[in-house]
Design a protein around this nucleic acid. Structure first.
Lengths: 113, 113
DNA sequence: TTGACATATTCCCATATAGGAATATTATGG
DNA sequence: CCATAATATTCCTATATGGGAATATGTCAA
């Protein structure tokens, strides 16, 4: 089988650096016309439209028509699965923060039921 | 151009569900032989070896030889870039947690310098 | 050395891009 | 209705898979 489609889930969608760049532009939560995104990221308009289409399919952005413009807005909550998954490994880089919590987890793991 | 290589960066590497599954198995930080991973995820051995090779290339796991076995261990800190990026959007799903922090950020954004 | 076990690698193939260029679609103003 | 602006879509191509099967490599034990 070939590689999975980028429109399959959020993980694949945000694996593209350009799409993360677009999401960063929309990161403030304000809606933007495609032309504004094009201006911000410096990519060809068709590319931006295609990337936005992918992001739309996985639900990370929403669209609204406004005249001849289409306003895209970040739907950040759909990035939560990525956050939740990677959060599982947080103890590997935040050693100084939550020692207590980690030790509690270790205690649970090593417990004999 | 074609799609970027999965070995290019961590984002691409973890876009594969099977590889995330493998990382989940290694999530407790203990080293495992390939055969143990195979046993845990129920995938063919060659597939596991290939996926581990990808994870190794992007530095998310490390290997140690132990006799005829190769012990793989999670190197979780290399997942931090993913965490850091997605963390940017945290306010979109943790509305109930850090209202104060968010309001402070909004205040900074709307400030006239 | 030989056999058995643990892993990695190679081959082959169907598939899904992502980029560039050109074009189609849709809406607005006059 | 027509020209223009804003977006989306289509075509084409080079490329990188990921899975399955088969095989190679490496290591230990007797």
């Amino acid at each position: 089988m070939a590689r999975a489609a980028t429109t399959l889930d959020v993980f694949n969608a945000v694996a593209e650096p350009r799409r993360r760049e677009i999401l960063d532009v929309l990161g403030d939560g304000r809606e933007r016309a495609v032309s504004e995104v094009v201006e911000a990221v410096g990519m060809p308009q068709p590319s931006v439209s295609k990337h936005l289409a992918v992001l739309l399919k996985v639900g990370v952005v929403t669209v609204t028509r406004n005249g001849q413009m289409r306003m895209y807005r970040l739907n950040g909550s759909n990035l939560k699965p990525v956050h939740d998954w990677v959060q599982t490994f947080e103890r590997y880089w935040s050693h100084q923060l939550d020692r207590i919590k980690e030790r509690a987890e270790q205690k649970m793991l090593h417990r004999k039921p």
